[in-house]
Design a protein around this nucleic acid. Structure first.
Lengths: 210, 210
DNA sequence: TGTACATCAGTGAACGCGCGTTCACTGATGTAC
DNA sequence: TGTACATCAGTGAACGCGCGTTCACTGATGTAC
């Protein structure tokens, strides 16, 4: 076999298997597995291998759980970023409406993943909490800097982006918390309320800084 | 024994034991028991009785867990109500500051209970979720009606109490979520931010309704 | 009031289950010479 | 290039543990007559 072809080394294949495991686990989550989300054997079965094999890739179940949470977080952040980029140069009011619609869609679509993340947000094991808090901070910061950029382009100064966008972020989070377990109609109502509330924050922030 | 003295009937004593169990469990929570909060044997030991005895008072552990959650919720609501009553006829700005300080104190004091409630808020078993959501609704409503009363006494009309107080409620909740696991200094910062954010909502609400 | 029986809160021991994890082993893949 | 050995991902079986729960039993309390 010529050297130029990729010869898949042993560690390559190992890495691939690791990914297969995580992907399988993620799929289990997305299918809405409830009972404490993920058992060793369930994940192994989904990945198509014997249970003890997982230990070739993860020291213990917490390591797998943490890797999975990181995977979910990464995915969420990517989506959030994409959504914001798409919106970035529309009118303010219009932007808000369409951003919220997109947000609502995303929440509905990733409901099981979000449910997992929320549960792990308060996992007794502090490593989970740290991972999630770290990622939340990052998303908060990104959102704040985006808002700052948008405001500057509009020529509006404001000394409290952080606080303002942080408030909006809080509203988004409680929206997610409230909306899991909700039917379509109630959900739509909630979304309308959320929109009003964000407007309140935006207007209030301007009032405070004028 | 004369009939006028209370003769403690069998069911009286049974009821008392039930309360003893719940109290013991609550105390365990308040001491900050972490691992999934409460095991059958732990609770039994804390209540000073053999494990199987619990089954004379609760059909299974979920029933005990739900009773405990209800207990916690009741307590939280009572405290919230007390705090609001105490505040009810002060100046607006002053009221906000002192209410928030009290809120912060309460959060710190009941941190373990809050942690339990938050975890059960997303318990896979939907009965837990329902209990907590129901209670949250009640607290939201109570808060809204208090705010409405206060506004009317000040002669300010506002068609969106619900939405405004709901936003503030959301901010309070995320404060709690963020503040668990936080040190004193960070916590104080967060409280200051929260105050600004609530002001934003209040001002924004007035702006929207003028 | 006294007696005979029923009720039932509480108990010690044990069960069954599912979980994460360990172990000895296999066989294909990589390495050294 | 061929051979002998080392590595190591993957496996079937089993372990240990702690959990909620069941069971047969006790003894004090209540009830009927």
């Amino acid at each position: 076999m010529p050297q130029t072809e990729q010869k898949t080394t042993r560690s390559d294949r190992k890495e691939a298997t690791r990914r297969r495991i995580l992907t399988a686990a993620l799929q289990l989550v997305e299918e809405g597995r409830s009972p404490e989300a993920l058992g060793l054997r369930e994940v192994a079965r989904a990945a198509g291998m014997a249970a003890p094999s997982l230990y070739n890739h993860f020291a213990d179940m917490d390591e797998l759980g943490l890797a999975l949470v990181d995977e979910c977080l990464l995915r969420m952040r990517a989506i959030a970023r994409g959504a914001r980029k798409e919106i970035i140069n529309q009118e303010t009011e219009v932007a808000l409406k369409s951003l919220l619609q997109q947000f609502d869609k995303a929440v509905a679509h990733f409901e099981p993943v979000l449910r997992l993340l929320i549960m792990q947000w308060f996992n007794p094991n502090p490593e989970y909490r740290r991972s999630i808090r770290r990622e939340l901070s990052i998303m908060r910061r990104e959102m704040a800097s985006d808002m700052k950029g948008a405001a500057q382009r509009r020529g509006q100064g404001n000394s409290e982006y952080e606080i303002e966008s942080d408030a909006i972020f809080s509203l988004l989070i409680t929206f997610v918390l409230n909306v899991l377990d909700m039917g379509k109609e109630k959900r739509a109502k909630r979304l309308a309320i959320l929109e009003r509330q964000i407007l309140m924050v935006v207007l209030g922030s301007r009032a405070l800084n004028s």
